[in-house]
Write a protein that binds this DNA or RNA. Structure first.
Lengths: 208, 208
DNA sequence: TAACGAACTGACCGATGCGTCAGTATTTCG
DNA sequence: CGAAATACTGACGCATCGGTCAGTTCGTTA
């Protein structure tokens, strides 16, 4: 049986540690390549070269290129979800948690992840697997935002008629601004973005 | 001299009417294909087949595939800018104009244009020309929104401390929601989107 | 240490699709 | 009308790249 066989579930547990590590290496290399070159320009040879392995080995672990890309995107999504879970577990006062959540969401540095999400949206137009991953990630983000706002309303820190609606609006606002920052490059900077987001946050959670 | 030579400016004026028409046909066919299949899966043969012409003829009018795609995207952008200009020229009371502008912006029907814009954002990550077109379009949208809000403030219909900021936020909110609607498909519908946008509009233009 | 299977290599095959080009049809103009 | 320019065809060359496979290395177990 080849290592590729059970790729439908991402569980690495019962696979040998070495294989799991190799798969992870390949997925990470794929994500980096994906972020720099985009879906269509990413070659299996790029991924192999980056790791100093043969293209055959990539195919040994991942049946097809589509498989590899979809799984890499999912891998990145899961990593982000992990960050989210940790963020949700930290015990902070509502206002500070909301700031932390939004801070984490907004693009920073080289935009590696955000370039991936933007690629993902375009890919989601045609690929079921990309769409599912992208949706899942977004829903998780909105969920964390909503929970945070709801907690703040319960504690009396926030006034917000519909945490659900506010979470949706804030999440979408941030994504729209991220497009300007990451894809359009130069229309706004992170400071300007933070300013616009902060104003929206204030409006959403303190009054109707 | 071939028809391709002066493709740097898009001016069709001094070109023969027949050639201009042919170029337009090809660009329109390319936009449709682009919207359905995406940038990387669009083949010159697809465009040619759709028009019942040879691939050679496409190359006769457009030097390379990159050229063709970039110009098609720009063509779609210009068409949208045209709609904007008309919208801005209509004389309506501020509230109704704002509604009309937003109505026009939000995704409808088959999402043909919106699928194109989403493709464009991903492409803008690497292509200078796609980035320029996409930016230009976005700036125009924000500009129309800002002008409309400013007019409403001047007439006393709106209360808005910063039409500029509000226009940015509304535009980005709509783009973020469009991703959910068009790319993620099924997370929300147009009615839900309209509801979320309306609430944001009310918050932005009637109070601080 | 022999043997077996898993991990890995890299050359190769086949498909695909862009761009070219020699040639053909059509229009323009002297 | 004849000739030159323009519009157009479609087959072909050529490069690219995904996926296969025969063979090699490595680790593990009897």
């Amino acid at each position: 049986m080849t290592a590729t066989a059970d790729s439908t579930d991402g569980s690495d547990e019962q696979r040998s540690e070495a294989v799991a590590r190799r798969r992870r290496e390949i997925l990470e290399a794929t994500c980096e390549t994906l972020s720099r070159k985009g879906v269509s320009a990413t070659r299996i040879a790029d991924v192999a070269r980056r790791l100093g392995i043969s293209t055959g080995l990539v195919h040994y672990h991942f049946a097809t290129k589509d498989e590899l890309l979809a799984e890499a995107f999912q891998f990145a999504g899961k990593a982000e979800l992990e960050v989210l879970r940790e963020l949700a577990a930290v015990d902070l006062p509502p206002r500070r948690r909301l700031n932390a959540v939004i801070e984490e969401f907004c693009p920073r540095g080289e935009f590696v992840s955000w370039r991936l999400w933007i690629e993902g949206w375009a890919e989601a137009l045609r690929s079921e697997r990309f769409r599912a991953t992208s949706r899942e990630l977004d829903e998780a983000w909105i969920g964390v935002l909503e929970d945070t706002i709801t907690a703040g309303v319960a504690s009396g820190d926030f006034i917000c008629p519909s945490p659900h609606d506010s979470a949706w609006r804030l999440s979408c606002l941030i994504e729209g601004l991220a497009i300007q920052l990451v894809a359009h490059g130069g229309t706004i900077d992170s400071v300007e973005m933070a300013r616009l987001v902060d104003a929206a946050v204030s409006a959403e959670v303190s009054g109707g």
